[in-house]
Amino acid sequence: MAQGTWMLGMFLVLGSPLRRVEVSLKPEHLGVAWPLTVEGEAGCLVAETKGLRLVAWGQEVLQPDGRRRAIYLLPAAKEAGVQVWRFVKASPPPSPFRFVRHPDGRLELLEGGKPVWVYNFGPQLKEGVAQQYRRADYLHPLYDLDGTVLTDDFPKDHLHHRGLFWAWPEVKVGESTYDPWACQGIHHRFEDWLAQEVGPICAVLGVQGGWYLGERRVVRERVWLWTYRADEVGRILDVALSLEAEDEPVPLRGRSPDKGYGGFTLRFAPCRDASIVTPQGRLAQDGVHVRLPWADFSAHFRADEAFSGAALFDHPQNPHHPAPWLLRYYGVLNPEWPALEWATLERGKPMTLRYRVWIHRGDAQAGRVANAFAVWADPPSVREE
């Protein structure tokens, strides 16, 4: 590894000044765009391949630690081998992203005027549904690349399910156990915005919130979302959750005695011809406690023949990776943590969980889900000169 380079999390960080970068691509890295993080200022990377000029714009993206890192969104490659990128200092193009705040406690993200997702920071309740199911702090709708809604909220079979959400069925405070998964006892509350930023390749949202028992905050929560510009195949949505006990330790776990579900969960909208695909192939039936690095749910979500879907990726540095999963054909992907074991949130020791959502056209094969995971979990080797 060249002098001035080191690994930070899942990213290869390069020393400044950046003049030339060699990227070594394997066959499993092809066909998907991916973010490369480097030290130094953001500008533009340019590569020549077979007479064609490739351009990757950079952006100085805010991180949870308050630092900014230059991230370049490298376009999908068609051939394995070495790409040589050269740094060009240039003014970036306008951002395609825009945040729109609605008066009912919803923050919407648009890309090129098309909806990407809505973050519900204010309490939401569907007409005719009992007050106990009022909830906040989740994404819905989450859209595919063509503007079709992928998620469901207040589904009749599970009224507590809510788009892309994170909640646990068993949370202990003192001698009592509560069920925020089912919107019982503990509720999520928005407190403040940590970031709302847009740039040429990425939109960043940071949120400070808490888990409340009445008016008492028992867990501090920070949520970070990085939404990358879509290409013809897919879009990356990176999520980092930071959880810390306010005062006394807070144990939590998934649904006991045997199911274990809980944590980061994606509930899909009504659809037809659904297919759940994992690294082992297509599932013939629901899966429970299947240890996997990723899973994909694809289907027809609208009347025409267009297929689309979304995959969840469990970060290799998450505890208990690869996680046991709950996979339901009625429309659920859930990498369970901590499943049936107790995990304890403590003051001064934030627990951070990271996931990637890969939203794509077509089924898992057309959407290059396996490649999208590979470029994240085992990224191309990079050398600076």
Rank of each mutant, 00 (worst) to 15 (best):
Leu243Met: 06
Ala245Cys: 07
Ala245Thr: 03
Asp247Val: 12
Asp247Ser: 13
Glu248Asp: 13
Pro249Leu: 06
Val250Trp: 06
Val250Gln: 02
Arg253Gly: 05
Arg253His: 14
Arg253Tyr: 01
Arg253Glu: 07
Arg255Tyr: 10
Arg255Gly: 04
Ser256Cys: 05
Pro257Lys: 09
Pro257Trp: 04
Asp258Pro: 01
Asp258Glu: 10
Gly262Gln: 08
Gly262Ser: 11
Phe264Tyr: 13
Leu266His: 14
Leu266Asp: 04
Arg267Pro: 08
Ala269Asp: 12
Ala269Gln: 11
Cys271Ser: 13
Cys271Phe: 02
Arg272Val: 00
Asp273Arg: 15
Ala274Phe: 03
Ser275Ile: 13
Ser275Arg: 15
Ser275Cys: 12
Ile276Phe: 06
Ile276Gly: 10
Thr278Gln: 02
Thr278Phe: 03
Pro279His: 07
Gln280Cys: 07
Gln280Lys: 12
Gly281Pro: 11
Arg282Gly: 06
Arg282Met: 09
Gln285Ala: 15
Gly287Pro: 04
Val288Thr: 09
Val290Gln: 07
Pro293Trp: 13
Pro293Gln: 03
Asp296Pro: 09
Ser298Tyr: 05
Ser298Val: 10
Ala299Trp: 05
Ala299Ser: 09
His300Ala: 03
His300Thr: 00
Phe301Ala: 01
Arg302Asn: 11
Arg302Pro: 00
Ala303Thr: 05
Glu305Val: 10
Phe307His: 13
Ser308Tyr: 10
Gly309Met: 02
Asp314Leu: 12
His315Ala: 05
His315Gln: 01
His315Leu: 04
Gln317Phe: 14
Gln317Asn: 14
Pro319Trp: 05
Pro319Lys: 03
His320Lys: 15
Ala323Asp: 13
Ala323Gln: 13
Pro324Glu: 12
Pro324Lys: 04
Trp325Ala: 06
Trp325Pro: 02
Trp325Ser: 06
Leu326Met: 14
Leu326Ile: 06
Leu326Cys: 11
Leu326Gln: 15
Leu326Gly: 07
Leu327Asn: 09
Arg328Val: 02
Tyr329Gly: 07
Tyr330His: 08
Val332Gln: 11
Val332Lys: 13
Leu333Ile: 01
